[in-house]
Amino acid sequence: MNKIPLILFAVLVVFFVVPMLKGKDPAILESVMLGKQVPEFSLPAVVKGKKGFSSKDLRATPAIVNVFSSWCMECRLEQGTLEAIGQIENIPIYGIDYKDTPEKLAPWLKEHGDPYTAIGTDTDGHVAIDWGVYGVPETFVIDAKGIIRYKYVGAVTDEVYRAIFRPLLAELRQ
């Protein structure tokens, strides 16, 4: 009886240590959504002059879906790279604005860059849950059939683009 907590704790420690020993970078969270269709959703517009979007928009061409928020510090680091990706790769970038205060968004985009084709607001975070989002920023790569091919956790910097996104997008185009 008195040894139960010890045993449970030992099990817990194993679960913590295993991913570390495997050398997993905790920043890489594989998604159960990989290889699946994007979840059904429809997100309303939030910024003037920019449409919202829904799952239907993601079934025509390859696309990038970026989950971000104006209160997220790391998101600031990736706006420039995302803008560049959109231009170089000629791929639409959709933004899911996660649990944000709507009026803070427009000035934020003005300051840090606006790479988005369309931005939908996910005020209560329900759509993000369907996507398996654990935090912001997270970036998904969707193929032409609307299947999630990749998920990146953290800011998409120039290095990340060169190492991961460029080869992946080239592959998708073939």
């Binding site: 817990l12 997993k24 594989e30 998604s31 159960v32 990989l34």
Partner: peptide
């Protein structure tokens, strides 16, 4: 809270619990 950790340790992918 720890479910995502278990899933990840067992290579069952990452999830979030809402």
């Amino acid at each position: 809270t720890l479910y995502p950790v278990f899933m990840s340790a067992l290579d069952l992918g990452s999830v979030s619990v809402g």
